[in-house]
Measured scan of single mutants.
Amino acid sequence: VTTYKLVINGKTLKGETTTKAVDAETAEKAFKQYANDNGVDAVWTYDDATKTFTVTEMV
């Protein structure tokens, strides 16, 4: 189990959160659900070296 981080650069929601998951795909599903629940529709990137997902909402 690995800890993954999500950085949110949204128009109305900004911040960071983490989740523990067995792999990046599982973490991504959890983070996308979190973003969807909070109304963030954005572009996703992932950095495997830092285990960090970044979501940037387009203006």
Rank of each mutant, 00 (worst) to 15 (best):
residue 17 T to H: 14
residue 49 A to E: 10
residue 2 T to Y: 14
residue 53 F to N: 00
residue 32 K to T: 05
residue 37 D to R: 11
residue 53 F to C: 01
residue 5 K to V: 08
residue 12 T to I: 11
residue 16 E to F: 14
residue 27 A to P: 01
residue 37 D to K: 12
residue 37 D to T: 12
residue 56 T to G: 05
residue 6 L to N: 01
residue 41 D to T: 09
residue 7 V to H: 04
residue 17 T to I: 15
residue 30 A to L: 14
residue 38 N to Q: 13
residue 12 T to S: 10
residue 28 E to P: 00
residue 31 F to E: 00
residue 47 D to I: 03
residue 27 A to G: 00
residue 20 K to L: 14
residue 30 A to Q: 11
residue 35 A to F: 15
residue 5 K to A: 03
residue 17 T to V: 14
residue 15 G to S: 13
residue 4 Y to V: 02
residue 29 K to Q: 08
residue 9 N to P: 04
residue 33 Q to L: 10
residue 44 W to G: 00
residue 8 I to Y: 11
residue 45 T to V: 08
residue 48 D to N: 07
residue 28 E to V: 05
residue 11 K to N: 10
residue 33 Q to G: 05
residue 36 N to D: 10
residue 52 T to V: 04
residue 10 G to W: 14
residue 2 T to Q: 11
residue 15 G to H: 14
residue 55 V to L: 12
residue 59 V to H: 10
residue 24 A to P: 09
residue 23 D to Y: 03
residue 15 G to Q: 13
residue 36 N to T: 13
residue 22 V to T: 11
residue 36 N to A: 14
residue 50 T to D: 03
residue 56 T to K: 05
residue 16 E to W: 13
residue 10 G to S: 13
residue 5 K to R: 12
residue 48 D to A: 12
residue 15 G to I: 15
residue 26 T to Q: 11
residue 19 T to N: 03
residue 39 G to N: 09
residue 24 A to N: 04
residue 16 E to C: 15
residue 1 V to S: 08
residue 34 Y to E: 02
residue 36 N to Q: 14
residue 52 T to L: 02
residue 35 A to S: 05
residue 1 V to L: 15
residue 21 A to G: 03
residue 13 L to P: 04
residue 53 F to E: 00
residue 25 E to V: 10
residue 13 L to N: 08
residue 28 E to H: 12
residue 36 N to G: 14
residue 12 T to D: 09
residue 47 D to C: 08
residue 11 K to F: 13
residue 19 T to F: 14
residue 56 T to A: 05
residue 34 Y to A: 03
residue 23 D to G: 02
residue 59 V to C: 12
residue 21 A to M: 02
residue 56 T to L: 06
residue 39 G to A: 08
residue 37 D to L: 15
residue 4 Y to C: 03
residue 59 V to E: 13
residue 28 E to S: 07
residue 23 D to P: 01
residue 16 E to G: 08
residue 39 G to W: 14
residue 25 E to K: 12
residue 27 A to W: 02
residue 25 E to F: 10
residue 32 K to H: 07
residue 55 V to Q: 03
residue 55 V to D: 01
residue 36 N to K: 14
residue 35 A to V: 15
residue 12 T to Q: 09
residue 52 T to A: 02
residue 5 K to Y: 14
residue 16 E to Y: 13
residue 59 V to K: 09
residue 26 T to G: 06
residue 3 T to K: 05
residue 43 V to I: 12
residue 12 T to F: 14
residue 14 K to Y: 09
residue 41 D to R: 09
residue 33 Q to I: 11
residue 24 A to Y: 14
residue 5 K to C: 07
residue 56 T to V: 08
residue 53 F to V: 01
residue 28 E to K: 11
residue 57 E to Y: 13
residue 34 Y to D: 02
residue 25 E to W: 10
residue 44 W to S: 00
residue 29 K to A: 10
residue 3 T to D: 05
residue 58 M to Y: 12
residue 49 A to Y: 08
residue 7 V to A: 03
residue 56 T to C: 07
residue 1 V to M: 14
residue 43 V to A: 06
residue 11 K to A: 12
residue 7 V to N: 03
residue 31 F to I: 02
residue 46 Y to S: 00
residue 20 K to P: 04
residue 42 A to Q: 08
residue 39 G to C: 11
residue 27 A to E: 00
residue 55 V to F: 05
residue 34 Y to C: 11
residue 38 N to G: 06
residue 47 D to G: 01
residue 30 A to S: 07
residue 2 T to P: 05
residue 33 Q to T: 08
residue 32 K to D: 01
residue 31 F to R: 01
residue 48 D to V: 06
residue 25 E to C: 11
residue 19 T to L: 14
residue 6 L to K: 01
residue 53 F to T: 00
residue 10 G to M: 15
residue 52 T to M: 02
residue 26 T to H: 09
residue 26 T to M: 10
residue 3 T to V: 12
residue 47 D to Y: 02
residue 55 V to T: 04
residue 4 Y to I: 02
residue 34 Y to G: 02
residue 6 L to M: 08
residue 22 V to A: 10
residue 42 A to I: 09
residue 50 T to N: 06
residue 29 K to V: 08
residue 23 D to V: 02
residue 37 D to E: 13
residue 56 T to M: 07
residue 4 Y to H: 01
residue 39 G to S: 07
residue 54 T to F: 11
residue 43 V to D: 06
residue 22 V to C: 09
residue 11 K to C: 14
residue 25 E to L: 10
residue 16 E to T: 13
residue 26 T to F: 04
residue 38 N to K: 12
residue 44 W to T: 01
residue 5 K to T: 13
residue 37 D to N: 09
residue 50 T to Q: 04
residue 2 T to V: 11
residue 54 T to E: 04
residue 32 K to R: 14
residue 56 T to H: 07
residue 50 T to L: 05
residue 12 T to K: 09
residue 53 F to H: 00
residue 29 K to C: 06
residue 39 G to D: 07
residue 47 D to P: 00
residue 49 A to M: 09
residue 3 T to W: 08
residue 7 V to G: 01
residue 38 N to M: 15
residue 7 V to L: 06
residue 9 N to R: 11
residue 5 K to E: 02
residue 50 T to P: 00
residue 20 K to S: 10
residue 58 M to S: 10
residue 30 A to Y: 15
residue 56 T to W: 11
residue 29 K to H: 07
residue 8 I to A: 03
residue 31 F to A: 01
residue 27 A to V: 02
residue 18 T to W: 14
residue 34 Y to H: 04
residue 49 A to K: 09
residue 56 T to F: 08
residue 41 D to G: 07
residue 25 E to P: 07
residue 28 E to F: 15
residue 4 Y to L: 01
residue 2 T to H: 14
residue 14 K to T: 09
residue 18 T to N: 04
residue 52 T to E: 02
residue 36 N to C: 12
residue 38 N to C: 15
residue 49 A to S: 10
residue 36 N to H: 14
residue 11 K to M: 12
residue 22 V to W: 08
residue 17 T to Y: 15
residue 30 A to I: 15
residue 21 A to R: 02
residue 28 E to Q: 10
residue 14 K to H: 11
residue 30 A to V: 14
residue 54 T to D: 01
residue 48 D to H: 08
residue 23 D to F: 03
residue 44 W to R: 00
residue 44 W to I: 04
residue 28 E to Y: 15
residue 42 A to W: 15
residue 6 L to R: 00
residue 46 Y to E: 00
residue 27 A to C: 03
residue 13 L to K: 06
residue 54 T to Q: 04
residue 16 E to D: 05
residue 38 N to H: 14
residue 37 D to Y: 13
residue 39 G to Q: 07
residue 4 Y to A: 01
residue 14 K to L: 10
residue 15 G to F: 15
residue 54 T to L: 05
residue 22 V to Y: 10
residue 43 V to W: 07
residue 21 A to Y: 04
residue 41 D to K: 10
residue 20 K to V: 13
residue 46 Y to N: 00
residue 44 W to P: 01
residue 13 L to W: 15
residue 25 E to S: 10
residue 50 T to K: 06
residue 23 D to A: 03
residue 12 T to G: 11
residue 6 L to Q: 01
residue 42 A to N: 06
residue 16 E to M: 12
residue 19 T to A: 07
residue 9 N to H: 11
residue 8 I to S: 03
residue 44 W to F: 10
residue 25 E to G: 07
residue 41 D to P: 09
residue 10 G to E: 03
residue 4 Y to Q: 01
residue 34 Y to R: 03
residue 55 V to P: 01
residue 25 E to M: 10
residue 39 G to V: 13
residue 12 T to R: 08
residue 23 D to I: 02
residue 1 V to C: 14
residue 12 T to E: 09
residue 33 Q to A: 11
residue 11 K to Q: 12
residue 53 F to W: 05
residue 25 E to R: 11
residue 32 K to G: 02
residue 59 V to F: 12
residue 14 K to M: 11
residue 52 T to R: 01
residue 33 Q to P: 02
residue 2 T to D: 09
residue 30 A to R: 12
residue 36 N to M: 15
residue 1 V to G: 09
residue 59 V to D: 13
residue 33 Q to H: 07
residue 43 V to T: 09
residue 56 T to D: 07
residue 29 K to W: 07
residue 29 K to M: 10
residue 48 D to T: 06
residue 24 A to V: 13
residue 22 V to D: 05
residue 20 K to N: 11
residue 4 Y to N: 02
residue 23 D to C: 04
residue 29 K to F: 06
residue 29 K to I: 09
residue 47 D to E: 05
residue 40 V to S: 04
residue 25 E to D: 08
residue 12 T to M: 09
residue 37 D to C: 14
residue 28 E to R: 13
residue 22 V to E: 08
residue 26 T to C: 05
residue 6 L to F: 06
residue 41 D to Q: 09
residue 33 Q to S: 08
residue 3 T to Y: 06
residue 59 V to T: 11
residue 40 V to T: 06
residue 59 V to M: 10
residue 23 D to L: 03
residue 8 I to P: 00
residue 21 A to C: 06
residue 50 T to M: 05
residue 17 T to M: 14
residue 28 E to A: 13
residue 38 N to P: 06
residue 15 G to W: 15
residue 21 A to V: 03
residue 34 Y to K: 03
residue 51 K to V: 02
residue 54 T to H: 07
residue 8 I to C: 13
residue 51 K to G: 02
residue 42 A to V: 08
residue 40 V to Y: 10
residue 27 A to S: 01
residue 48 D to I: 06
residue 45 T to D: 08
residue 46 Y to H: 00
residue 14 K to P: 06
residue 36 N to L: 15
residue 9 N to K: 10
residue 6 L to P: 01
residue 28 E to C: 15
residue 24 A to W: 14
residue 37 D to M: 15
residue 5 K to Q: 04
residue 40 V to R: 06
residue 47 D to A: 02
residue 26 T to D: 06
residue 44 W to Q: 00
residue 43 V to H: 09
residue 31 F to Y: 01
residue 7 V to E: 03
residue 57 E to L: 11
residue 16 E to H: 09
residue 51 K to E: 01
residue 49 A to I: 09
residue 14 K to W: 12
residue 7 V to P: 00
